[in-house]
Design a binder for these strands. Sequence first.
DNA 1: GCTCGTTTTTATCATTTGTAAAAAAATCGT
DNA 2: ACGATTTTTTTACAAATGATAAAAACGAGC
Lengths: 187, 187
Amino acid sequence: MHIDLILDAIYSLPPESRGRLTQDIKEVSYPKGYILLRAQKIENSIYFIKKGIVRAYESSTENEVTFWFGQEGDPVISMKSYIKSQKGYEDIELLENTELYQISTQKLQALFNEDLHIANWGRKLAEQELIKTEERLIAMQFKTATQRYKDLLEQQPGLFNRVSLGHIASYLGITQVSLSRIRAEIR
Amino acid sequence: MHIDLILDAIYSLPPESRGRLTQDIKEVSYPKGYILLRAQKIENSIYFIKKGIVRAYESSTENEVTFWFGQEGDPVISMKSYIKSQKGYEDIELLENTELYQISTQKLQALFNEDLHIANWGRKLAEQELIKTEERLIAMQFKTATQRYKDLLEQQPGLFNRVSLGHIASYLGITQVSLSRIRAEIR
DNA sequence: GCTCGTTTTTATCATTTGTAAAAAAATCGT
DNA sequence: ACGATTTTTTTACAAATGATAAAAACGAGC
């Protein structure tokens, strides 16, 4: 997925502003299994996924819990690092060989203070992530695990070919055994 | 709580920009029980709480579920309306007689496109709400109801004098009976 | 196609959480 | 202070979910 497409989906930038932003973006790639982002560390970069799939998980508890999957076009950000310059909760692991666009948060901050359009792009980035997170929270509070599973099947059918059901179960907030039962009931 | 204090806590604005923003802000107040915001409607205003307390709840399901409390200084926003101009999930009810600062989203959007500082203020507003929502989501996925209750007791002890345990129970994602059991165990 | 390691399902049992109804306690208005 | 209403707790039972272990299915590599 091309970077211009990704940036534009967030907020359409005039050519000059977009140039300023893309100037600071590098392409990087890492193999399956690589840990892109570590919970202990304050991260200095954010990423967008060109190709591949990643998961964010927290490992401080005995059994690690996946709480986010990122696919082509998605931003990969430790929000605690990005927003508050604090350690995040999550490690982020690449589940396939993955190509990423990388940008330094320092450079991004500088652009936010210089360019009105980029500041609004940054606003939209946060707003879009906010909507997604809010939707997740509401699903966790209002819906049964079965309903959340069905919703995921509908909204992200492709996900099931790319990640294990163990990861999906913890993403849904249940055990793998529970997920297996849900699948058996539906069948 | 004074509006300048609230705005500054989000992002410190230079005097000229702050003036532009506060110019469009009106003070309003409504009595306890008033429904400030309705799920069916696309809202044209956002608010900040000067004095009082409110709750957001979704009522489409049989038993209504509270998923957010707002207190002095907090923004009161239907994010779906504000960000995507779509209907939100939530009704918002005033739990006390409440004084609010009101601003039109249209005027705010106009200011975002005119003033770099205000655009960055808007970015910070979204970012702060994002961090809060993410923390909630993570607590729902990683922590037991008992732990979430204890956390709330610690972080917002004042809340318990202002809202019923029934509302708090649904906020924590459990039934009132469950909450009562938790409280009995701890005692 | 076979083997080894991983993932997924199934089974059993213990624990947690929910539902419903009733009792107890607290709150409110007069 | 009183009764009426609402809120909170308690109880008994049902349903859902978790933990653990074992079996079955699947996949990568030879």
